[in-house]
Design a protein around this nucleic acid. Structure first.
Length: 404
DNA sequence: TAACGAATAT
DNA sequence: TATATTCGTT
């Protein structure tokens, strides 16, 4: 860089500007086909070569609805921009920025040698600005070095999902150490699970102790309330039986026991062993939520009728996760499989308490469960696609257009 | 200095 | 609500 003459550098920059990067594409979503036509006409000609529906694209929504709520909803569902109709040509001039920022963030996350390839999701400008707000001190980029090696712009902190498996390990560790002496570091050591930190465990331990205290002060508890409550899942921490088996206070069915998330699990699973972790990511409220989940052959699990799907995920299929599902808007493999499982469980294979939980959720006020099947339908010669996005208004039409 | 754990933030 | 982060204490 330093050795490069100013003139030379200028030429290179010019060249780079002239030649727009290849392969940039934008997916625009609109609920009005006519508008899509107009939009399409506005876009440069000769670039109508169509590609398949790729969810791994920046999504721009268009609507006449300029209500702030509608805009926020669109953004929350994963759109990176929301244009008011009628769309001005000069507004279109700026949409390349979404592609570019996305591309940049992707290259950054490739640099960070994280093992979660294929779990990318759009980072809306909204989420970004919100983040910069919260990290106001870093704004000047003073800590850039430190952050950039570890997924700065797009990657958010990862949350550990305390699945039944993990929790059981946690309990086993405590049981070995003894409740009194159990401290995060020791537990961590005994659990022997990669990616878990002392802080993760400290946090969980705190919660667990709070739970124990609650149980202590209310020894009888109210199992029914715990199981059915829409607040729901509080208070179902498993108990440690005298003989080293883990049991649960409110157990009605011999083969299914509720865990502390209010879901269910199989007794057989309690003896489990492996806990390699892998990461998953789900969209919630327009933001990426990232979770660590046990890395076990899950697809097989929910495909097999003899082996109900819940056991692996019961820590995940609670309120929050259901919300995640309902705001699904990406097609990454992990999300796909999770959604697949969700569909599967919705069909009634679900143990009763989770099923009632599901119906409760869909009937409830704020969040809605997915209702229709996901479908991708090509329309006419111009490839329009129906994409179920559980979206603000109704079905959305989309066009995928290579962007110049 | 590191771990803990309660309080607080996200 | 669940989990992360902060912060005073040990």
């Amino acid at each position: 860089m330093a050795g490069m003459g100013g003139h030379q550098r200028q030429m290179m920059e010019d060249a780079a500007e002239d030649k727009f990067p290849e392969g940039l594409r934008v997916l625009a979503v609109d609920d009005d086909r006519v508008c899509l036509k107009v939009l399409e006409a506005l876009l440069p000609e000769g670039l109508r070569e169509l590609i398949g529906l790729e969810m791994d694209l920046p999504v721009i929504m268009l609507s006449v609805d300029c209500d702030k709520k509608a805009v926020m909803k669109g953004i929350n569902y994963g759109a990176c921009d929301y244009l008011m109709k009628p769309v001005q040509t000069n507004e279109l001039k700026n949409i390349w920025q979404h592609v570019e920022s996305r591309r940049r963030s992707q290259s950054i996350s490739h640099m960070s040698r994280d093992n979660d390839d294929g779990q990318r999701v759009h980072t809306g400008t909204l989420a970004k600005s919100k983040d910069s707000k919260s990290k106001s001190n870093d704004e000047d980029g003073s800590n850039e070095n430190k952050e950039s090696t570890h997924a700065s712009t797009t990657q958010k902190k990862m949350r550990v999902a305390w699945t039944t498996e993990l929790h059981n390990k946690f309990l086993e560790a405590i049981y070995q150490i003894g409740l009194e002496k159990a401290a995060p570091n020791k537990i961590l050591e005994l659990m022997n699970v990669d990616c878990l930190t002392r802080h993760n465990i400290a946090s969980h331990l705190q919660k667990y102790r709070l739970y124990l205290n609650r149980v202590k002060s209310n020894p009888l508890g109210d199992a029914r309330e715990r199981q059915n409550s829409s607040m729901g899942n509080q208070g179902n921490f498993m108990h440690n039986h005298e003989h080293g088996r883990w049991h649960v206070s409110s157990c009605s069915n011999p083969s299914w026991i509720p865990n502390y998330f209010g879901a269910t699990s199989q007794l057989g699973q309690l003896t489990d062993n492996q806990s390699n972790l892998c990461m998953g990511s789900l969209i919630h409220g327009g933001r990426m939520s990232r979770y660590l989940v046990p890395n076990t052959p899950d697809a097989r699990r929910f495909a097999d009728p003899e082996d109900p799907p819940i056991s692996l995920y019961n820590g995940i299929l609670d309120d929050i996760m259901l919300d995640e599902f309902s705001s699904y808007s990406s097609g990454t493999s992990y999300v796909d499989s999770m959604r697949g499982m969700f569909m599967e469980t919705s069909k009634g294979k679900t143990p009763s308490n989770l099923r009632s939980h599901l119906t409760n959720t869909s009937g409830g006020g704020g969040s809605s469960a997915p209702t229709n099947e996901y479908q991708v339908q090509p329309l006419e010669s111009i490839k329009h696609y129906h994409t179920h996005m559980n979206a603000p208004s109704t079905q959305m039409l989309g066009i995928v257009v290579p962007f110049f």
